[in-house]
């Protein structure tokens, strides 16, 4: 048991170390991309009326005249030793400060989306898989097809038109109480429900044909127990992976929903940074988003290691002859 725990601890440590590499790699890539965009930040900041002297002075002050490697190392040092993502070129506000105030909103939407994706997508897929080729299967798959085909920005606008403009039930935009998040979350989770339902159905059908299910039935295990104890845990493995990826996507891809509903989250901040050529904002937002994506993946891998019997066996030592 202790050996298994140690192995799991090493696995987590190993993943944490990789996470650092991922973050440093992300920082280098995003910095390099922004560095090589042929845009003169000084001109963006000072406008078309700036003199050459003003432009030169600002470039010097921002350190833009330094060689690429000097700028990169300075940036990495600030980010990873001081947790300083720099200041917005346009607003002169620390990027970290802005992101900290916006992350909760983006996460709230992301987590809510995953919650509803799971609560609706998994039962739908289960119903479809257990009733293959019956009307329930057809209904679920038609629903999934509709959900996956509806673009979220279009759905968002339709929801606003119906529930805010015509019925006056919900606010059309902005932030405030929970009712401000109902339409954004709904618009964001619909396609995920479809994806999860289809994934769940597909995995369940794969598992249904597995030898151990046939074996369980042959041993006289009740159908309920076959489904709940043998089919579901195994069928859920790819779905859980999908949910983790979905969380990462819904957080990183929050730009559209946040823009449509004017929610000041990370996505909207990133978009504003891109539009304004505000490089520290873009770089900082990407690093933070990648950090949370990596964190979600780490947690997911830990869960995965517990759920997947093959990985569980590997870290409990059984595959290497280490007894419990």
């Amino acid at each position: 048991m202790k050996a298994g725990t140690n192995r799991m601890g090493k696995y987590i440590l190993n993943r944490l170390l990789w996470m650092i590499f991922v973050l440093v790699g992300t920082a280098i890539v995003i910095f390099t991309i922004m560095y090589f965009i042929p845009k003169d930040i000084a001109k963006v900041l000072l406008g078309s009326s700036a003199t050459q002297a003003e432009l030169a002075s600002l470039r010097e002050r921002l350190g833009l005249n330094d060689p690429y490697i000097v700028q990169l190392l300075r940036y990495l040092k600030n980010v990873f030793t001081k947790f300083d993502l720099g200041k917005s070129y346009i607003y002169n506000v620390p990027v970290m400060q802005e992101l900290l105030s916006r992350i909760p909103r983006t996460f709230f939407i992301g987590c809510s989306v995953i919650l509803f994706d799971s609560l609706l997508g998994i039962p739908l897929g289960l119903m479809a898989g257990l009733n293959q080729n019956k009307w329930q299967d057809a209904l679920c798959m038609v629903l999934a097809l509709i959900f996956v085909s509806v673009p979220n920005f279009w759905l968002a606008l339709q929801l606003v038109d119906i529930f805010a403009v015509k019925l006056h039930w919900l606010p059309a935009f902005g932030i405030g109480g929970i009712k401000y998040y109902i339409m954004p979350v709904f618009a964001a989770f619909v396609s995920g429900v479809a994806t999860n339902a289809r994934q769940m159905r597909s995995s369940l059908l794969d598992v249904t044909r597995a030898d151990y299910i046939t074996s369980a039935r042959a041993k006289g295990v009740s159908e309920r127990n076959v489904v709940l104890k043998h089919m579901l845990p195994n069928a859920l493995i790819p779905v859980v992976t999908g949910l983790g990826v979905g969380l990462g996507k819904s957080i990183a891809g929050s730009v559209i929903i946040e823009t449509v509903f004017t929610i000041p989250g990370v996505g909207m901040y990133l978009l504003t940074g891109i539009n304004n050529a505000d490089y520290p904002v873009v770089q900082g937002s990407i690093i933070i988003l990648s950090f949370f994506s990596a964190l979600v993946m780490l947690l997911l891998d830990i869960v995965y290691a517990q759920v997947d019997p093959r990985i569980k066996a590997q870290y409990s030592g059984r595959m290497h002859g280490v007894t419990k």
Binding site: L157, A164, V165, H168, P171, A172, F173, G174, T262
Partner: peptide, 16 residues
């Protein structure tokens, strides 16, 4: 601070 032009129209219509 509304960013989407359509939401500005909606905000007028809903009295926001």
């Amino acid at each position: 601070f509304i960013t989407d032009p359509q939401q500005i129209v909606n905000a007028l219509k809903t009295g926001e």
